[in-house]
Design a protein around this nucleic acid. Structure first.
Lengths: 260, 260
DNA sequence: CATGTGACTGGTCCTAAACTGGTTGCGTAC
DNA sequence: GTACGCAACCAGTTTAGGACCAGTCACATG
């Protein structure tokens, strides 16, 4: 028999059990699988710091008994979190919450944040701000119906006063009613208006700069540039920005983290 | 929240059943086929988030009973949505609403996989394979003690027969005892030997190709190239490969997915 | 101090019941 | 023929129990 006789007043464990019982709605009769609900509840407990990083969770048997759930189910839920690197299991030792969730480097940042992270002072020179009906190509990239209004922002971005990139941003007027709302950071304005970018796809290629753009960037024609085409999405999947940038190849590099 | 569900324990299921009953007009005598109406109703339920993505729908038998409809009809309606990838069926498990399946783009891939994903046939021309004591710079990049043995692989990678990239890979001999083990794919060999890459950091910049490399890549000197420097890590964090590549700027672009 | 024991941990295996979708066959109505 | 209903069976999943192994850790013993 694998019985358990614990009655120690472990407040932490009690808190967790209570949290799980509430969050997973163990008694409710939902169509969702039990282990699935428990998994989500555990995920929430880690997110809400009910389970602090580095802390340990109660034993599987104890959890099973106190939640009136089979150990199989507990293990199935835990297993999913272990696969996601949120929990760490070691035979013989208790299951623990992962110490540090490695913050991925592939993070969606604005130009300003990017430069600050490099220890450079970001700056902006406005080249054009306008508004109008989306061109067919723009409507296509943004997933808009033809005829929708869009804002266009054309800027020279600088770092420590030196030209770093040319940027053309196109944003549906639904998210940015006027280009004049943007002082320096487009993303700040979007966030303030409740349209937080959540995801982006970015295509990069190496290319050669032409005459006009070379002058603006302060490099000789024929210098290498990093062409970046970026489509930024909201939580719901709607495209909130389409952006084409030319970064100076001699002073800019892009860092990505790749997985699995 | 827990106390409100006195009259009806299955809130979620009840909501759906009510929604379907209303939307599909089950009792009405319309020329439209019953399964057709049910299908549209289910489609609406998904669109209106009555059925959230990732959620599960009640079992076919339960639906059939509660809607007073045959299971055959239920299945016929569900079948259509499965064909449209709106629902996901798995024998033994409940039918679930499809998650938005944005395939992750920031994935660690080998050159071969990358080219295949682009619909191109990957190829390799060996320029050099050798082995020796790590140079100080190499030891530094790989995090090795000075004097450790490393393998060096220098390859011209082709796509559909055309030169695409020059690649110099450096791998500690502990993970690759001999450079001759690699036929075409380094990652395949590493995986077979139990050293699966799990994570990589990649730095990219735009640059100009020099004379020798231009000849190998089949582009004129001064053509734009994408310089990629990649450090690949194992699960445990040890560096398993340090790689420098030059990709042709005119035919190669790199796609990344960024979050939050 | 070292060390060994025992209680506890997760890892793995098993049985079993109650469900799930998958499939087939038979029947009725239009 | 198509639409619809009913029923049985198969295969897979979920959940509940249990038992045993192997690793970990705290604590008493020397």
């Amino acid at each position: 028999m694998d019985t358990i006789e614990t009655s120690k007043p472990q407040t932490e464990a009690d808190d967790l059990v209570a949290y799980l019982r509430d969050t997973a709605r163990l008694d409710a009769d939902t169509p969702t699988a039990l282990y699935q609900r428990l998994e989500d509840a555990l995920r929430g407990a880690i997110r809400d710091r009910v389970l602090p990083p580095g802390g340990v969770i109660p034993g599987e048997r104890e959890l099973a008994q106190r939640l009136s759930i089979s150990r199989v189910t507990i293990r199935k839920a835990i297993r999913a979190l272990v696969d996601d690197r949120l929990l760490v299991q070691r035979q013989g030792a208790r299951t623990a919450v992962a110490e540090r969730v490695e913050k991925p480097v592939s993070v969606l940042t604005s130009f300003s944040q990017d430069m600050l992270a490099r220890g450079l002072a970001p700056g902006t020179v406005w080249l054009a701000k306008d508004m109008g009906v989306a061109l067919p190509a723009e409507a296509m990239e943004l997933g808009l119906s033809p005829g929708t209004e869009v804002c266009r922002l054309r800027r020279l971005r600088t770092a420590d006063g030196q030209p770093m990139a040319l940027e053309l941003s196109i944003v549906p007027a639904a998210y940015l009613p006027s280009p004049d709302l943007v002082e320096t950071s487009l993303y700040t304005v979007l966030e303030e208006r409740g349209h937080s970018p959540s995801r982006a796809l970015q295509r990069m290629r190496s290319s050669i700069v032409g005459g006009n753009e070379a002058k603006l960037l302060g490099v000789p024609p024929g210098a290498p540039i990093l062409e970046i085409e970026r489509r930024v999405f909201l939580e719901g999947g709607q495209t909130v920005e389409y952006c084409r940038s030319l970064y100076r190849g001699d002073t800019y590099d892009f860092l990505v983290e790749l997985h699995r």
